[in-house]
Design a binder for these strands. Structure first.
Lengths: 252, 252
DNA sequence: AAAATGACTTGATCCTGATCAAGAATTTCT
DNA sequence: AGAAATTCTTGATCAGGATCAAGTCATTTT
């Protein structure tokens, strides 16, 4: 056996340069050399199972994390025992950015299904970004993007009706699945109705009723976690908040 | 006149090292030398008047801005002509972070009163942060803080009642004025009731009624924009969402 | 397979806060 | 100063979505 050219399957899989997510992820836009250097500080652990915490509120912050497979819910435990769901994260997405401020996780992250992640020790990432302007720039961009996404969410929670919120939620998943090479119109949601409601500032019952209504209106077909979007353009109209979508076909 | 030691008032005023805000602002935690270097890239223009835009949605992004006096509202124009108020910014606060992503302002910023700002050209800031690890770290922290603040706001809009929202709003100003050396209990709000309502996801009328009610309950005294908080501890109880505050003295 | 558990749906009712409407106070304009 | 335009307040009514309650379906346990 010639050892030089033989690489095990595992070795191929775990490098950024071989990762199908690299165009969505931290290495986005970096040169191959830079990707290699970034890769050298990344740790890949065993996968998490459904319900496992990646980190909890109060945990010491050491690493940012990128989901590589599966999905994750982040949430902020609030004083009175409840929680606010902050986001649902798919492969390629970076979590933990809010913990940089004081080296402490103020939020928690939990696996919604079997989930693998890359861990990026932040101190090392910071050092690396000092000597790699493109990485520094990428970090600024990712942090900025997170802020932009949060402000979109503020608009959603501050101004949108229940149906606009759910339509927006579904289209967000549609777009993100599409980006990742999956169907934009046929997918499984890994979170419960309760979690969707919490995230969108709605009661479970409202979410359930809306799914039923959207199905009655032929916007989608839904069966438990399996969603098939049947009229994406009209979902976009609903998100716009214009009542054009309503008036053209109101109720059922 | 000996020219060496004579410095004009203006020269003193415009340097970070002489600025009373430096402990709240970008220079926070930097060494005097580093502050000096940061200072060298900062531009200080003429003040804005009430209603002037610092930037508009769609403007090309070139600088982050720090408010040095006055106050600023940031908002995101939404499709149907309306707007979502994203924040009210006081001296020492940094705005424009959301524009790093694509070198474009997606939001707008407008002066609520006569307002002075420092402009920090982002390209130069980025170069500087490459060679000044402490500045880079500070930037990461500020971006992370912004994310944390946004997620707090998500909880507010997703879960809190109208009275919890207004109490939270007032205490936020109370804390920020206090940090800046002003009274925590006696201040002027520079924004209109309409803008408060928009920010908090409430109708103007609701905001107005809540002010009246809070006054009836001796939580505060309000006259137009002038607010005097009379029972800060109870306002904190209200924010907690526990109905302890309600039950102890309901309505008036 | 039966029972238990938890997730989801559906229906009935209630309540918070929106909307509509009008008047009062303040600021701006001429 | 007087008129006009805003902003703010207050009252009356309405509605979207929460809450309460019960039942259905799916999954897990024994």
């Amino acid at each position: 056996m010639t050892s030089r050219k033989v690489v095990s399957f595992e070795n191929i899989k775990v490098a950024c340069k071989n990762c199908s997510l690299s165009t969505l992820c931290l290495p986005m836009g970096l040169s191959p050399d830079d990707v290699e250097r970034l890769d050298s500080i990344i740790k890949r652990g065993r996968p998490y199972h459904r319900g496992d915490h990646l980190y909890r509120g109060g945990d010491k912050f050491h690493s940012l994390r990128v989901i590589t497979s599966g999905s994750v819910k982040t949430y902020s435990p609030n004083e009175d025992g409840g929680e606010q769901v902050l986001g649902f994260h798919l492969p390629g997405e970076l979590i933990g950015l809010d913990a940089i401020l004081d080296d402490n996780h103020n939020c928690a992250a939990i696996a919604l299904e079997t989930t693998a992640v890359c861990e990026i020790p932040f101190t090392q990432l910071e050092s690396l970004s000092s000597i790699m302007p493109s990485l520094q720039h990428q970090m600024y961009r990712l942090l900025s993007r997170e802020i932009g996404q949060d402000t979109e969410m503020l608009t959603l929670l501050g101004k949108k009706s229940a149906e606009e919120r759910l339509a927006s939620f579904l289209l967000s998943f549609s777009e993100r699945f599409k980006q990742r090479g999956f169907s934009a119109s046929d997918f499984f949601l890994s979170m419960s109705r309760h979690e969707i409601g919490n995230y969108l500032g709605l009661a479970v019952e409202t979410v359930s009723r809306l799914f039923t209504r959207f199905q009655d209106e032929s916007l989608l077909h839904v069966e438990r976690k399996h969603v098939q979007l049947q009229d994406i353009p009209r979902l976009y109209e609903i998100v716009q908040g214009s009542d054009s979508a309503k008036s053209s076909q109101s109720r059922g």
